[in-house]
Write a protein that binds this DNA or RNA. Structure first.
Length: 140
DNA sequence: GCCAACGTTGGC
DNA sequence: GCCAACGTTGGC
């Protein structure tokens, strides 16, 4: 089972919004090929950290992949073909303590995280070691 | 196919 | 509000 990190600005879609809706949330509007490719690689049940960008700048919870990649309902076709795809997600749980970007930057074990190295990538892979380290920092 | 111009992301 | 990083677009 692979792990991921997915970013959202909380004033657009927060972790609590996903909980409140109670139905799989379409991770739409991603318009970056690398992020799209990561979503196409996701398997049902894969878990992802939910990171609040811009406001908060912290990992607040865990979500899971509820639907494999499918055409993004908000995207136009290009020459009649699907270009942009995305998955749907469901909430799993909030972290006991959020793990901030500053915390991650200060942790020598997490210097290679895509969150830091590829700061603009909104959907990125997380290694098993990184996953465990973030959970540890969250007090889990 | 190169690269300058431009737009976007997202931290600070 | 600024700006660095980086992806995309379009002229040549």
């Amino acid at each position: 089972m692979a792990h991921w990190l997915m970013k959202s600005e909380p004033n657009v879609l927060s972790y609590d919004d996903v909980v409140t809706k109670g139905v799989p949330e379409e991770w739409h509007s991603v318009r970056n090929y690398a992020a799209r490719n990561n979503m196409k690689a996701m398997q049902l049940g894969d878990e992802a950290f939910f990171y609040h960008s811009v406001e908060g700048k912290e990992i607040v919870g865990i979500i899971r992949v509820a639907t494999l990649a499918h055409p993004d309902s908000t995207a136009e076709l290009k020459d009649g073909k699907v270009v942009w795809e995305c998955v749907d997600v469901l909430p799993v749980r909030k972290l006991k303590r959020p793990v901030t970007l500053a915390d991650i930057k200060a942790n020598p074990n997490l210097q290679d995280m895509a969150l830091i190295k590829l700061s603009r990538l909104s959907v990125s892979p997380v290694t098993d070691a990184e996953w465990a380290e973030v959970l540890r920092m969250a007090g889990e």
